[in-house]
Structures are given as structure tokens and as C-alpha cells.
């Protein structure tokens, strides 16, 4: 498995930086575009489906990858997500945000997979997966062995800390941190209130603080 090289941490957006009129307008335009594309898919336009797939394939696979921590499984589940979207095209109504619907399906599938206990069966391959990815990254980025070892330890700690979170907290944190999803959308995805999401995130970040605050 190969992982993307880490971006400059300082340039990563913080939640407090989510505001900004321009970004909001872009987001609204993107959402309208999603709904518009999906309506075209409903009319039988497969090119629009290809565009939707191109836009959302990465975020869905990445979200699922962090939920189940296994790349082949995450891609398998992501395929199921898009297959369900395609199957439902005839009955699609733009009543909610397209991404909310997408992440709702993805979360549902991931939680089912985790609850089915497949996680334990594939846990052995997870570590091999990680080490394999590390080996390739060493070659890719020409880092010193020491830097790579430090990075590997940190990465492992982050993965373990996320994996230790209860399922719903995990889903909420992953959507919040990595997919930049708003509270209201997380709430609709998880089927709970916004205040419940705030509480979930608070508890999740408290747990993560206890395990990861020493790292940065």
C-alpha cells in the first residue's frame, strides 16, 4: 500500500479557518453542481455519473480507508457506495446534500463491516500493509532512516489512537478532520443532533489528546 506524502502540517486548514465568504460560495456552487449532476444521471447521462465519481471517489475511499484501516476493503466498500448511488439514480430527489447521502451510505457500510467482526480477521494484514507502505515511502521521498522511523512511529500512534475510538466518534472525527464536513452534515450522516455531534467530537478529541498531545 502506498500513502500520499504528508503535506506541510502548517498549511493544513484548521476548523476555525473554515469560514471565508469565497470558500462558502465555492462550497454552495459545488453542492448545487452535485445535485445537478445527479439529476442528469437520473435522466440517463452517464457522463455526469463519471464526473461525480471523479469528484467524490477520493474522499469516499479515504474516509473508508481510515474507518476500516485496510485499503482493499476500503475500495471494495467505496465501490458498493457508488454502486448504490447508481442503482438509486431513478428515484433520486435533491432533498439533502449529495455528499451527506454519500457519506451516510459509506458510514453505514463501514460500521456494518466493523460490526461484522471482519476487522479482527484482517488485522494481521493491517500491520504488514503499513510496513509495506513505509518501505515504499522511504524509497519515494529519500528520507533518512531516522526520519522515517520517527514518522513511522507517529503514524502508527495516530492510527492506533483513531482505531481505539468508539465507532461513531471515529466516524465523526474522520469526517471533521479529514473531509472538512460541517457539524450539521455530520449530524445528518450519523442520524443524530448537532449538539450530539459536538459532544461526540469533544469526547473523541479528549481521548486523542490523552494519546497524541505529546507528538506535535
Amino acid at each position: 500500500m502506498r500513502e500520499n506524502p504528508p503535506q506541510d502540517l502548517a498549511t493544513q486548514p484548521q476548523p476555525s479557518a473554515n469560514g471565508g465568504v469565497r470558500k462558502d460560495m465555492e462550497a454552495v456552487a459545488a453542492l448545487e453542481r452535485d445535485a445537478e449532476l445527479m439529476l442528469r444521471v437520473r435522466e440517463g447521462d452517464d457522463t455526469s455519473f463519471a464526473l461525480l465519481l471523479e469528484r467524490h471517489r477520493g474522499p469516499v475511499v479515504h474516509f473508508l480507508y481510515r474507518m476500516v484501516q485496510n485499503q482493499p476493503v476500503s475500495e471494495e466498500l467505496a465501490q458498493e457506495v457508488f454502486l448504490r448511488v447508481y442503482r438509486s439514480r431513478a428515484t433520486y430527489e435533491p432533498t439533502a446534500k449529495f455528499t451527506t447521502w454519500l457519506f451516510r451510505i459509506a458510514t453505514h457500510l463501514a460500521l456494518n463491516w466493523i460490526r461484522d467482526g471482519k476487522k479482527e480477521r484482517r488485522q494481521e494484514s493491517l500491520d504488514e500493509d503499513l510496513l509495506d507502505g513505509m518501505d515504499r515511502q522511504v524509497a519515494d521521498r529519500q528520507k533518512t532512516i531516522e526520519q522515517e522511523m520517527v514518522y513511522e512511529v507517529k503514524l502508527r500512534e495516530v492510527r492506533q489512537a483513531i482505531q481505539a475510538l468508539p465507532e461513531k466518534q471515529r466516524a465523526a472525527v474522520l469526517m471533521h478532520k479529514y473531509q472538512d464536513v460541517e457539524y450539521s452534515q455530520i449530524a445528518r450522516t450519523l442520524g443524530c443532533s448537532e449538539s450530539a455531534v459536538k459532544s461526540l467530537l469533544f469526547r473523541a478529541y479528549e481521548s486523542l489528546r490523552a494519546r497524541l498531545a505529546h507528538m506535535a
Binding site: Q7, E75, L208
Partner: peptide
């Protein structure tokens, strides 16, 4: 510490999606 946690989570980047993902779908 909350800011540090946020930064620490940034270490975990997701893998590149397989090239044949679309074809399989």
C-alpha cells in the same frame, strides 16, 4: 494540546486510490 492533536492527525495521509478503481466499478 488540541491544536497539537489536530497537527498530529495530519501525519496520517490516505493511500492513492487504485488505478483500476473506475474500471472495476
Amino acid at each position: 494540546e488540541q491544536r497539537k492533536v489536530w497537527e498530529a492527525l495530519g501525519y496520517w495521509t490516505a493511500p492513492v486510490v487504485s488505478a483500476d478503481f473506475n474500471a472495476r466499478l
